[in-house]
Simulated assay, not measured.
Amino acid sequence: MRAREILAELLERHGRTYAAEAGIRLRDTPQPLYQLLVLSHLLSARIRAQVAVAAARALFSHRLRTPRRMAGASWQERVDALGEGGYRRYDERTATQLEDGALLLLDAYGGDLRRLRGEAGGDREVLSTGLRRFPGIGPAGADIFLREVQTVWPETAPYLDAKALQGAEQLGLPTAPDELLRLAEGRDPAVLAAALVRGALDKG
């Protein structure tokens, strides 16, 4: 099977961002950007992606969709919501980190990640460094956020990180981002990146 056909099949099966799977209607506004930060935090732990997505949906169903609501909830409320999503291995530590991260976002950026974007001035490395200030967001979490946010922050695109390129390699696809984008024929780079990551994670 040719590379173009493999990629078309991959996009057909897995062409959905993790934000969309978590029910986040991603826009360049404070609430969905914060929800993406929470999702990136959860996805970066050593836990199955499906569990992280379910935990994010549970948090949001408990109305913990903004940094103010996240910080205002009790620690036990956050633990319970994470447990409801099946996120039990790291629930206690993560509940604390979510509060600390929400407070940092409120204090440093008035609850609005677009201010961090403005500080970065289009520099992805500066943006990544800023993201890693948030508790629980390490290099992997920053990569996840940047992969997904490129839909609404075009200056970060195209962003195909090491995990996405690992998926490409495992599928016998080119590992040069420009070549992958050409083969994807205009598909959203965030969708392409998510599909490649799922390809890397899918043992089947």
Rank of each mutant, 00 (worst) to 15 (best):
A140G: 02
L42H: 03
P67L: 10
A73K: 05
R187A: 13
P135G: 12
E148V: 11
D107Q: 15
E5G: 00
P177C: 10
R93K: 14
L103M: 11
Q35E: 15
L192R: 02
Y90Q: 09
T66W: 00
A81H: 07
T156I: 14
R117W: 15
P154H: 13
A20P: 00
L173N: 07
V149N: 08
A45W: 11
W75P: 00
D178K: 10
E77N: 04
G83Q: 14
D100F: 00
A120Q: 06
Q166L: 12
F145Q: 10
Y18I: 01
P189D: 07
Y159A: 06
T66G: 02
A22D: 02
A52G: 14
D91W: 07
L26P: 07
Q50R: 15
G86P: 05
A22E: 02
T66A: 09
P189Q: 05
L43H: 03
T129H: 14
P30R: 08
A19H: 09
P139N: 09
Y18T: 00
Q166S: 13
A71E: 10
A176F: 00
L113N: 12
L82P: 10
T129Q: 14
S128K: 15
A71Q: 03
A81I: 08
V152E: 12
Q35T: 01
D80F: 00
T129D: 13
T94A: 12
R4Q: 12
D100H: 13
G167S: 02
A120F: 01
G86F: 10
T151C: 05
A102K: 06
V79I: 11
L146N: 08
F60P: 01
A95P: 07
L82T: 12
G199I: 03
E12Y: 07
D100A: 12
D107K: 15
P139I: 04
V197G: 02
V126N: 01
F145H: 10
G130W: 14
T175S: 11
D143Y: 03
R187K: 11
A162D: 13
R187P: 00
A22Y: 06
